[in-house]
């Protein structure tokens, strides 16, 4: 079971984070954000923070899977989980590019 978590964990983290950032962007562009007294600049800041947090978590996950404490005893699972963790890191960076490059609420 733990091995299944090692394999599925990193990409599940990507999916959760990706959906959460998308949700945050939706919130920022909704009337609720303005009602809370926040402006678009605060929104961009929040998005940037969230994106950095995601990338940090992914790096941490990748490093943790390399340690003896969290690595699997099966060589195949170890390679597979490290590979998928790298995929998750790349996916996070790739799919969060818009945070830095596009306009938020148009």
């Amino acid at each position: 079971m733990t091995d299944i978590l090692r394999i599925s964990g990193p990409l599940t983290l990507w999916l959760t984070a990706f959906s959460a950032v998308y949700g945050l962007q939706g919130l920022i562009c909704s009337p609720r954000w303005a009602e809370a007294g926040l402006d678009l600049a605060a929104g961009r800041m929040a998005l940037a923070l969230a994106a950095s947090l995601v990338l940090g978590l992914q790096v941490a996950f990748l490093l943790a899977l390399r340690t003896t404490r969290f690595a699997s005893c099966s060589g195949f699972v170890r390679t597979l989980s490290l590979g998928l963790s790298t995929v998750a890191l790349v996916a996070s960076a790739w799919t969060l590019i818009p945070v830095a490059t596009t306009s938020a609420c148009l």
Binding site: I97, T102, S103, L106
Partner: peptide, 15 residues
């Protein structure tokens, strides 16, 4: 392709 799409998409926005 993604870069192209993002740039063109940004240009089409109703600013």
């Amino acid at each position: 392709l993604l870069a192209y799409g993002l740039v063109v998409g940004e240009r089409l926005l109703p600013r």
